[in-house]
């Protein structure tokens, strides 16, 4: 197990080198010049030249890459072209917000998705089944931008139950939880729908197995059968989906962060891309990629807990 984890962590190195090269090249090959953006349309040629020289943008691309790579090795992600702030610090302020949002969305998605999926499977063909699967289909299809604004209109502007937008960063307080309700619903509803559908089909498949028939034949009731025998086996694909989607949630917070004015990494990244703030894009992508890889590792490890037959040696 330990050697497996070590091996997986070692694999992180080539992955991260690859990511750094790709991100660096994509940003530098894309049209658009950070100095021109910073100087704005009003700038004279000499203003732009001075900024380019200060930022080192006149150096050959490989020199710039080496500077970036050397910085990473020293734990220095660089400094924002726009705000002159260290990228590591920018990420440090914003990542907890994105993480809180993604975790809250995952909690919402799991609660809604698992319960809807389980009930739908057990009561297959019932009205509840049809309605919840219809909602699930809508949840997957509707753009989160629209869902967010509709929730906001209903619960904040009309009913005044919840704040419209903003997040204080304090998820452990009542005010913080209130601020997270709508964004996490918005972000989590698509994943909830996915989890519901996977849970349902996975349970239905397991219910056909011989050992379930045996359990029933022994006289085991509905609840213990589903609870003990079905769920545990049906959850492996569900956990896979949840794990993969958590990475997706972390990287997919952009729209929700914009709509709900949450100061997160996604929004920072979009802004950095539009202003060609190279160090910020590189640093943030790096961090998200690392998290993504680590989450996948974590998910792979939880399989063993669910299914002891899975071994890693």
């Amino acid at each position: 197990m330990l050697s497996y984890i070590n091996r997986r962590l070692l694999m992180l190195i080539p992955v991260l080198i690859g990511i750094s090269v790709v991100v660096f090249l994509v940003m530098h090959l894309a049209p658009g010049d950070p100095a021109v953006i910073l100087a704005g349309p009003t700038a004279s040629a000499s203003d732009i030249a001075a900024i380019r020289a200060k930022l080192g943008l006149d150096d050959p691309v490989w020199v710039q890459y080496w500077r970036f790579a050397k910085g990473i090795l020293k734990g220095d992600l660089g400094v924002s072209v726009q705000s002159d702030e260290p990228v590591a610090e920018m990420v440090k302020t914003r990542f907890p917000n994105t993480l809180a949002l993604a975790v809250a969305a995952m909690v919402v998605a799991s609660l809604l998705g698992l319960s809807a999926g389980i009930v739908s499977a057990v009561k297959k063909g019932s009205l509840f089944d049809s309605i919840s699967m219809l909602i699930a289909l809508l949840g997957i299809s509707l753009p989160s931008f629209w869902i967010g604004l509709m929730l906001m209109l209903a619960f904040s502007v009309r009913l005044r139950w919840l704040p419209v937008a903003g997040y204080s960063g304090q998820w452990w307080t009542l005010a913080g939880i209130k601020q997270l309700v709508l964004p996490s619903l918005t972000l989590g509803i698509g994943t909830a729908a996915l989890i519901a559908r996977i849970t349902r089909s996975s349970i239905l498949e397991i219910m056909q197995q011989d050992y379930i028939r045996t359990a029933r034949a022994k006289g085991l009731g509905q609840l213990p059968t589903v609870g003990k025998h079905v769920l545990r086996n049906a959850l492996v694909p569900v956990v896979t989906v949840m794990g993969l989607n958590f990475g997706g949630l972390l990287g997919g917070t952009v729209v929700t962060e914009s709509v709900f004015a949450i100061n997160g990494v996604g929004r920072m990244m979009v802004r950095a891309i539009t202003s060609r703030d190279f160090p910020v894009v590189q640093g943030a992508v790096f961090m998200v990629a690392t998290t993504f890889v680590l989450i996948n590792l974590f998910v792979d490890l939880t399989y063993a807990l669910l299914d002891p037959r899975i071994r890693y040696d």
């Binding site: 604004l149 906001m152 209109l153 904040s156 502007v157 005044r160 704040p163 419209v164 937008a165 903003g166 914009s258 709509v259 709900f260 004015a261 100061n263 929004r267």
Partner: peptide
């Protein structure tokens, strides 16, 4: 000064007095 990038959100926050 609060950053609220989305116009519809800004309008909603003005409506609620946030």
């Amino acid at each position: 000064f609060r950053v609220i990038p989305e116009a519809a959100t800004r309008v909603a926050m003005l409506e609620t007095g946030e």
